[in-house]
């Protein structure tokens, strides 16, 4: 397993190769890469703030939750912070498993839960100034459909 929170960019190809190298029991690698969306939304840059310590702790907890649900061989999560430009990579999630069903499902679960639980906040820069991105109800609904009692508290703390 590997959960990293870092300023610098990452190499998805190298990461995918590392995950499956020398593993004859792995039959599937599923991955997701999140990018800064700019054009159309009027966003010229974005700064990701996070809570050092809690971020790593929550990412490890999310990974452990995924491992309890699916038979996973390995998990890699990389999340960047700092100032990013449209097109930059923000997040990388990849899982390896014996079969594709577990790999696809666990990868989607990890992204949905990470969006709902990992303590990151996005500050967008636009022509009109900067603004903190509000959490989307859709993201919360996506996390909730994985049926958990321990998701990020909703509403009143």
């Amino acid at each position: 397993m590997s959960c990293r929170v870092q300023l610098e960019d990452f190499d998805p190809g190298a990461e995918l190769s590392r995950l499956s190298a020398g593993k004859s029991h792995v039959g599937a690698v599923a991955s997701f890469i999140g990018l800064v969306r700019g054009a159309g939304d009027g966003v010229s840059a974005m700064t990701l703030e996070h809570y050092p310590g809690m971020t790593e702790r929550q990412l490890v907890a999310i990974e452990q939750e995924a491992r309890q649900r699916w038979p996973l061989d390995d998990v890699s999560v990389i999340h960047r912070f700092g100032r990013l430009l449209p097109g930059d990579r923000i997040v990388f999630v990849a899982v390896t498993s014996g079969h594709r069903a577990a790999a696809f499902a666990a990868c989607e679960f990890l992204v949905d839960w990470l969006k709902n639980r990992a303590p990151f906040w996005k500050l967008e820069e636009t022509d009109l100034g900067s603004r903190w991105v509000a959490a989307k109800e859709d993201d919360e609904a996506r996390a909730e459909r994985w049926e958990t009692a321990s998701a990020q508290p909703k509403g009143e703390m």
Binding site: I90, K115, N116, A135, M157
Partner: peptide
Amino acid sequence: QDYARLDHPLSASDEVAFFPPVTGG
């Protein structure tokens, strides 16, 4: 560093954080 609700008990050595709903990913 774990999510907590308003009835969570506190002690002097705790680290408490307040923040908006998260928007990572």
